[in-house]
Amino acid sequence: MSPLIGALTARAVLAWARRDSALDRTNFHGRTVSLAGGPALALGATVGAAAGGRHRRAAVVAGTISGAVGLYDDVVGNRPEHKAKGFRGHLGALREGRVTSGLVKIVGVGAGALAASALLPSRNRADVLLGAGVIAGTANLLNLLDLRPGRAIKAGAVIGAPLALGRDGSVAAGTLGAAAALLPADLGEEIMLGDAGANALGALLGVALVARTGPVGRALALAVLAGLTAASEKVSFTKVIEDTPWLRTLDELGRLPR
């Protein structure tokens, strides 16, 4: 039931949010797309993830906060006073007395991840911190991948599919239901997820992962996420995908011709 609830909510929010032309943007192909996909996915996935299972409070906290601060960055991030690149750039702006939307997003996602992790089963404070790192790290990873139509949702499906199985699978299942409902519009370059959608998608899948792992599993997941984040500073994920035939085929599946 949770995937259906997530899908229906996402489609309803999308229909409403697309009426706002202020959310229109130009994508990498020069096509006009709507950022309405972001709030649609954030709200749909959060509602779907919270529709069943034992971890609805953590899902609501992670999905709502990551989606909200992501949407804030989507809407105002292009303004000159908010311009900065990377974490170091945002910290540099703070030293100059500027609080960028990107810094608000980083702090917000981190705080939401910590609060969500505290609501999940944990043995001690270190376990909570590991969980927070996984939730925030997954949110960041999906955001890093959201550079081409459908890429973040496809990556989310790979991460979330095994997490949707079993009695604790409702968080991932509801999240993926909402994402699947928006995938055709994303691939068709009608909408884009933006930070709101990608961060919420990743954060909710992070909650699903943390809910099903103990300290060792969380530490391993965090190590992988940290390694991928560090690699993104040196290597273009898009170039790696385009240079790897099977990844390129999967990445382009369902997408509009160039």
Results as ranks from 00 to 15, higher is better:
2 S>W: 01
5 I>E: 04
7 A>E: 06
9 T>P: 09
9 T>M: 12
9 T>I: 14
10 A>E: 07
11 R>C: 10
12 A>R: 02
18 R>I: 12
19 R>N: 11
23 L>Y: 03
23 L>V: 11
26 T>D: 06
26 T>R: 15
27 N>H: 12
27 N>L: 14
29 H>Q: 14
32 T>M: 10
38 G>D: 12
40 A>C: 10
43 L>M: 14
45 A>T: 11
46 T>F: 08
47 V>H: 05
48 G>E: 04
49 A>S: 10
50 A>K: 10
51 A>E: 07
54 R>P: 13
55 H>N: 14
55 H>R: 07
56 R>V: 04
64 T>M: 13
64 T>D: 03
65 I>G: 07
71 L>H: 02
71 L>V: 05
77 G>R: 07
77 G>E: 09
80 P>S: 13
81 E>H: 07
82 H>T: 04
87 F>I: 15
88 R>G: 15
93 A>M: 13
95 R>M: 14
95 R>K: 13
95 R>E: 12
97 G>P: 03
99 V>Q: 01
99 V>S: 07
103 L>Q: 13
109 V>F: 12
109 V>R: 09
110 G>H: 10
110 G>L: 12
114 L>G: 05
119 L>V: 14
120 L>T: 13
122 S>T: 14
124 N>T: 06
124 N>S: 15
124 N>Y: 07
127 D>M: 11
130 L>F: 11
131 G>E: 11
133 G>T: 13
140 N>G: 10
144 L>F: 15
146 D>H: 08
147 L>W: 01
148 R>K: 15
152 A>G: 02
156 G>Y: 00
156 G>S: 11
163 L>Q: 05
164 A>M: 08
166 G>I: 11
167 R>M: 05
168 D>M: 11
173 A>D: 09
175 T>F: 07
177 G>C: 09
180 A>Q: 01
189 E>C: 09
191 I>E: 00
192 M>F: 06
196 A>F: 00
198 A>I: 06
201 L>T: 00
204 L>D: 10
208 A>N: 01
209 L>V: 01
211 A>Y: 05
212 R>F: 03
212 R>G: 10
220 L>Y: 00
221 A>S: 15
224 V>P: 00
224 V>Q: 01
225 L>M: 08
226 A>S: 08
226 A>C: 05
231 A>M: 13
236 S>Q: 02
239 K>S: 14
241 I>C: 03
243 D>A: 15
244 T>F: 04
249 T>P: 00
256 L>S: 09
257 P>E: 12
258 R>W: 06
